[in-house]
Design a protein around this nucleic acid. Sequence first.
RNA 1: GCUCAAGUAGCUCAGUAGGUAGAGCACAUCCUUGGUAAGGAUGAGGUCACCGGUUCAAAUCCGGUCUUGAGCUCCA
Length: 634
Amino acid sequence: MSVIISLPDGSKREYPAAISALNVAMDISPRLADAALAAEIDGKMCDIGTIIDHDSELVIHTFKTPQGQELYWHSTAHLMAQAVKQLWPEVKVTIGPAIEQGFYYDFDRDEPFTEDDLAKIEERMKELSAQDLPYSRRELSKAEAISIFDKMNESYKIEILSEIPDDQVISTYTQGDFIDLCRGPHIPSTGKIKAIKLLKSSGAYWRGDEKNKMLKRIYGISFPSNKELKEYLAFLEEAAKRDHRKLGKDLDLFSINDEVGPGLVLWHPNGAMIRHLIETYWKDTHLRNGYKLIYTPHVGRSNLWQTSGHLGFYKENMYAKMDVEGQDYYIKPMNCPFHLSIYNANHHSYRELPIRLAELGTVYRYERSGVLHGLMRVRGFTQDDAHIICTPEQVSDEVEKLIVFSLDMLKSFGFKEFMIYLSTKPEAAVGEDADWEMATNSLKASLNKLGLEFSVDEGGGAFYGPKIDIKIKDAIGRAWQCTTIQFDFNLPERFDMQYIGADNQAHRPYMIHRAVLGSVERFFATLLEYHGGNLPLWLAPVQMMIMPITDAQLDYARALQEKMLARGLRCEIDTRSEKIGYKIRDAEMKKIPYMCIIGKKEAEEESLTLRRHTQGDLGSMSFEDAITKINSEL
RNA sequence: GCUCAAGUAGCUCAGUAGGUAGAGCACAUCCUUGGUAAGGAUGAGGUCACCGGUUCAAAUCCGGUCUUGAGCUCCA
């Protein structure tokens, strides 16, 4: 009985009898066999040693495929657990999955793992890797599994087992003296894990629930070669340099201080200038795209929040009420109720729709202290908020415009890669099914029409409507939400919003709630990290520094500055009595895009010498040539 | 909010058998007027996060509070 195996490149191989995936890999090339970590047989992930006894499609996974990496890191997590159990037998193991970059394992241990502990564990892992222990799979019944882990006093494993259906086949993986409950598959042996680095330890709740016990988590990463590990560590180092908190301090952009309060941002002049430029651009773009700008108060009476429902479902995130002449007021965590109040101030005809109300609205939310993070998570922030109120017929057109509008705006700040998510109806939701369907479909249809790739988060929508989120990555690959486009079936109802249709009847409009940048603070942070502090010329707070070689050129420098300012360039002069090298170094470190150096020669010729940050000397030229050159970059 | 770690000059950091603080950069003044990433001298600058305790004596040891960081959880 022969076995025909189809490979991803479309080729087929025939074998006279059943054969292991590893042997097929060997047959293709010994190098592949060496790199092989697991097999995907007819779409199912299996150990590389799995015997194939019928015609199948086979994919061999190595560290080069995402699935291969995942297994590799998962197996490394097992290796780490083995090392920990050998060093501290009393520690209980819980779970240890692979994550996007590496793996972690949660342990139940009273004392935290110290730096020294991590080093010890890493050392032991290397020893175990050198022993090249095979990961061997064993299938057994639930009862058998329970008895094994019960003997080892691994109560967390018992808890996991107790939740698995009785008839399901349970598998364990053993390497050396370590046995773990695991679905698998795993890499063939510990020897494949060549380079290991344990990165940090921290606390984590059992099953992510803060009512449960706090476990001790260790994060790590591993690679098939030291070279790859080194590259990864270098990447982390590079990323740290781009951290917006560091750049914010170095470039004197913003600060957050204890006296003022955590999560509340102070914008210094340089940061404020960048923010001003972002906001001005934002307003212009919105006006050009049919939005109306509005302004609304920072506080509002409690009945407003009663109507909106925020006091019911959002109270935990709101600051405590304040008393104003016996009335309760709240500082706003959202802009929507104000925007809707503006809509409701007048009667509206279907002829006016869509109405697009936009505001850079500053909101305050009480965030738990542990979640604050630079400008990314703060307690007071400005949403680039807008509400689009339209008729059912206008919905898909509006959604499509909105997606294009959002992506265009993000692109104009230099961003190129986005992750798009579509979130659909959750279990508990308000609104008619027909509305949900119509809204979700128009979101999906628009994304498809625009040829955009997106992932669907089934049931991930807000209770009041489906949404599209666009995320941007920060320096170390963490994704942060910027754009959110959300349907809202809740507030139009609660605020009894209406428009008069062609039939002279009152109708309920559709409402889309959206933010493109998300919040100015978060966007500013991602922008800064994305550009590593080297902002595009149009966003640089100081675009040019004029540097006279000696004091003799000061007058010429001032005249030049005036001419630059008149042409709209943000330009300053370094008048300090320092050498040119010193001034240049200073301007380079402040990441000022253009340096304009003038000495005796330039003053006599009425010319200037330009230098571009990150590029160096551009040579001497006339004032007009310099302006032309600079303008070409704007 | 929880776990762990940390908080010393504007910034980056030294400072443990407890004995009332130190460097570099930045800043000020003076000298120097020097052509593409740090010229020299002098000086000023600190309630060692805050509150309490132990001690003859606390940046240092103990307790509490605040803040920051890494996570958990949550979100723009």
